[in-house]
Design a protein around this nucleic acid. Sequence first.
DNA 1: GTGCGCAACGTGAACGTTCACGAAGAAAGC
DNA 2: GCTTTCTTCGTGAACGTTCACGTTGCGCAC
Lengths: 335, 335
Amino acid sequence: MSPRSPEPRQGRATILDVAAAAGVSRQTVTRAMNDMTGISQATRERVQRIAAELGYTPSRFAKGLVQGARTSIGLAIPDLTNPYFPAFASSVVEAATARGWNVVVDDYGHGTGNALDAAARLAPQVDALIGYLGDHAVAAQAMLGRRPIVGLDDPQAPAAGSISFDYAYAARLGLERLVARGCRSIAFLDSGQGGIAAGRGSAVSAAAAERGLQLLKFAAEPSAVHAREAVTAFLAGKAELDGLLVFNDLMAAGALKALQAAGRNVPGDVAVIGMDGIPLGELVSPELTTLSLDLRSVGRAAVGLLEGLLSGAIEPRASDSALLLRHELVVRQSA
Amino acid sequence: MSPRSPEPRQGRATILDVAAAAGVSRQTVTRAMNDMTGISQATRERVQRIAAELGYTPSRFAKGLVQGARTSIGLAIPDLTNPYFPAFASSVVEAATARGWNVVVDDYGHGTGNALDAAARLAPQVDALIGYLGDHAVAAQAMLGRRPIVGLDDPQAPAAGSISFDYAYAARLGLERLVARGCRSIAFLDSGQGGIAAGRGSAVSAAAAERGLQLLKFAAEPSAVHAREAVTAFLAGKAELDGLLVFNDLMAAGALKALQAAGRNVPGDVAVIGMDGIPLGELVSPELTTLSLDLRSVGRAAVGLLEGLLSGAIEPRASDSALLLRHELVVRQSA
DNA sequence: GTGCGCAACGTGAACGTTCACGAAGAAAGC
DNA sequence: GCTTTCTTCGTGAACGTTCACGTTGCGCAC
C-alpha cells in the first residue's frame, strides 16, 4: 500500500490526491480550482472534473494559514428566542455578508451560560467579536488578545468599540408621552436580570425623579410569559396603575395580555409603552406604542465599527469608537 | 532589524514570538497554553503571563490544520426576521454548542440571494451544513464535496440527511378542525414563494380534495404585512369566507389583523389556523390556533443526524437518514 | 561511581495550501 | 538559426501549530 492511495476512502481528499489523479502538480490544481491564469482551458476542466469526482474541497485551515484571511466574526447574544436579538443578528449577518465575512453565532442563554462562556467558545474561531457582553467585556478582550471587540450596551467599561443607547433620552420620551396622556400612576416593568439590563431601569428612575414623578418599579425575567405573570401579580396588589413603561417589547406584549385578562382596557385604563421597536409590536392588539430603535442601523454600525478597528482606521477606545444611539417614539395604539 | 522582532507591532503574535520572549521553545509554550503536563508550574505561569502581555492567541488555522478539527457547521436559513427561523436556529445552536461545535449562520433572504449563494459562502468555512436548501440541495452537495448536508423540507431530492414534515397529516388535521367548527367556505393562504414552500400548498389541496371540499387558494409573500394586504384584498372580493388556513404563523398574525380591520370577528365569523407553533402565536389576539411543531426537537434532530453522518454511524440517503416529523394541533382561540 | 528513572524542556516532521520563482516548450520576429 | 516572448506547468519555501520523539540534568538506589 503506497502512503497515498489514488482514491483515499477515509479522510478528506487533499490537493495532492487530485494532482496525482490528474497527473499534474499541486500548483496546477490550485490554478484550476481558483480560476487563476497560467493554465490551459482543457487542463482546467479536466482537473475540476477529477476534483469533483474525488469530492475534493480545499482545507480552510491550510488556506487560511497561508493567506491570513480575516473573515470570520463572532456574534454573542443572550437569547435567540427573544425577537430583538434575531432582528439585530439579521442586520449583522447582512452587513457582514456584504463584506464577505462569515458570522459565527453563539446564543449563551441556554441553561446557565453567560457571555463569558460564549466568548470562550468563539475566541478560538473568530477574528473579531460583536456582542452583548455586559460586565464580561474585559475578560472577553483578554481571550481575544489583539482582535477587536465591539460591545453593545456597555457604557461603563466600553470595549475596543462600543454601541450604547441613550436611555436617559428614551426614558424622558416615554414618560413624557405617558404624562401627556394624563397618566398619574406610572409603573416601570424592569428586567429581572442585572448586568447589561440595569441601564434602562436606572435611566427611567432618573427621568422620573427629574420630573418629580412617583414611579413604581417591579421586575420579571425578560420573556413574555414572565412579564405576563408579573403584571398579573402586580394588578392583584393594591397599587393604582394607569401608565406602564416596559423594559422591552416582548415583555410589553406579555403585559398587554395580562392587562386584558384582568379586564383593563389598553390604552383606555392603562397606557403601555414598550422598548426596542421589534416587528412583533405591530402584530399584537392593541398595536404597541414603543421606543423604537432602527435595528438594521445598529447592526450596520456594529459591523462598520469592527471594520474600522480591524483596518486600523479607528482607534480602540477612542471617541469615534463609541457610538451612542437614540430611540425614537413610535406612537401606535397602546399609548 | 531581525526577521522576528521581539514585540511585533503589526500582525498577530505567533507562538515563536512568545517562545523568544520567554526564552523557551515552541513546545513549552504549547504546553503552557494548553495546560499539558511536562512543564513546571513556574514556567507555565511565566509563559502564560508573557503570552497575555503580547496579546498572543493561537492561530485557529494552524491548530485546525494539524489537529484536523471538525467543529464548525453551517446553518443556511432564508430569513432571520421570520420568527420561525431564529426559533429553529436557536435549537440548532444549542444542540451544536452541547457538542462543542460552532455554528456559522447565513441568512440568504437579504436582497436577491438564494440558498445556493449561502451554500457557496458557507462551503469554504464549515465541515457540514444544515439548511433550508430547497432545490439547491444537489448543487450545495457538490460544493460541500464529502461533507454531509442535512436538508430541511426537501422530501423530493433529499440531501445526505433530511428532515421533512408530514404536511398531508397536518393539512388533514387543520381542515378537520375547521370543518368540525362548521366552516363551509374555507380558504388557504399560501406563500407566494415556490420551491421549498410548495409542499404545504399541495398537501392542503390534496387533503381538501380527499374530503370533497371546495378550497379557495390565494397567496402572498411570507411576511405579516404582505399577508395582511393579501387578506384585505381577498375580503374586498366577493368570496365567502368562514375558515382560513394559513401557510405559517407569521402570515396568520397578519391575517388576523386584516380580518379585524375588516370588522370580522375571529373566530366567530372566520376561524383561523396557522402553522409552525412559534411563540408569537400566544401573543396575538385572539391567540392563534396552530399546527405546531416542536422546534427544539427539530434542531436537535438535525444536529443529531449530522453527528451520525459525520461519524459514519448513519449512511447518507439511507432510511434512517430521512426523518419525517408531524405537526400537532394546538387549539387556542382563533379556531 | 555507576546506572536508572523521572521531570523538564527542545527539535524534526507533518498538516494542506499558496506564493514566488524557475523551467520547458512552442510560437514569433529578425 | 538564433534570440525573444509567451504559455503552460513544476518546485522550494513558508504559513503556525501539534505530535512524536530525543535530550539534558538531577536525585536516588545499589
